[in-house]
């Protein structure tokens, strides 16, 4: 996964709250291997409702309502967004699991306060415009507007560096091994009894 710090792309508004992961990708498509691409499944069952991603095929930034990505832990929801070219979602809040999955796939979940959300929605309206996101400074630039977003430090570090967690964790191999040894020695009950 390639890291990134700053990106300018076409932004559109998705004026809905509680867009759950079942809406982002219905469960029936999740048997597909990732290598085949998940872009075509994005918002599949909502297409006849004129979703902005259909109207603006080149969109890279979604400005959505609160609790975006709530529901199932399916990472396929993030795959569908990423494979359709989305780099960031800006919303007043995100499902916790979705936000973690997003960061693990280079998709920025940029949390904004309600006031910023209203400003962005009214600036974009039903149209589209180029918007810049800068992760280190947590800034959003849209025309003359300069706004800020929130992103926890661990998420920012990961997005900027594009790190793979498994590789990172290798640096802690000794600590993990000593934890395991101590857990086995002091809490044998944790290991499942052969039943």
């Amino acid at each position: 996964m390639a890291g990134w710090s700053n990106h300018t792309g076409t932004a559109v508004v998705l004026p809905r709250e509680n867009v759950d992961t079942d809406q982002i990708i219905p469960a029936r498509f999740m048997a597909t291997p990732r290598s085949e691409g998940y872009g075509p499944f994005l918002f599949h069952d909502l297409r006849d409702e004129g979703f902005p991603t259909m109207r603006v095929p080149g969109a890279e930034v979604l400005v959505a309502g609160r609790n975006f990505g709530c529901g199932s832990s399916r990472e396929a929801a993030v795959y569908a967004l990423v494979d359709a070219g989305i780099r960031a979602v800006i919303a007043p809040s995100f499902g916790d699991i979705f936000a973690g999955n997003a960061v693990n796939n280079g998709l920025l979940p940029a949390r904004v306060d309600d006031c910023t959300a209203v400003t962005l929605v009214s600036a974009l309206g039903t149209g589209q415009a180029d918007l810049t996101l800068d992760i280190p400074s947590r800034r959003i630039m849209l025309g003359d507007l300069e706004l800020s977003f929130e992103l926890p430090d661990p998420a920012a570090t990961k997005l900027i560096n594009g790190w793979d967690d498994i590789d990172l964790t290798r640096a802690h191999a000794e600590q993990i091994e000593s934890y395991r040894a101590s857990r086995e020695a002091t809490a044998q009950w944790v290991w499942p009894r052969a039943g």
Binding site: S73, R74, E75, A76, V78, I97, G100, N101, N104, N105, D165, I166, T169
Partner: peptide, 9 residues
């Protein structure tokens, strides 16, 4: 609950 990247981890 965790996503697929975390499951792999």
């Amino acid at each position: 609950g965790i996503g697929a990247t975390q499951v792999a981890h």
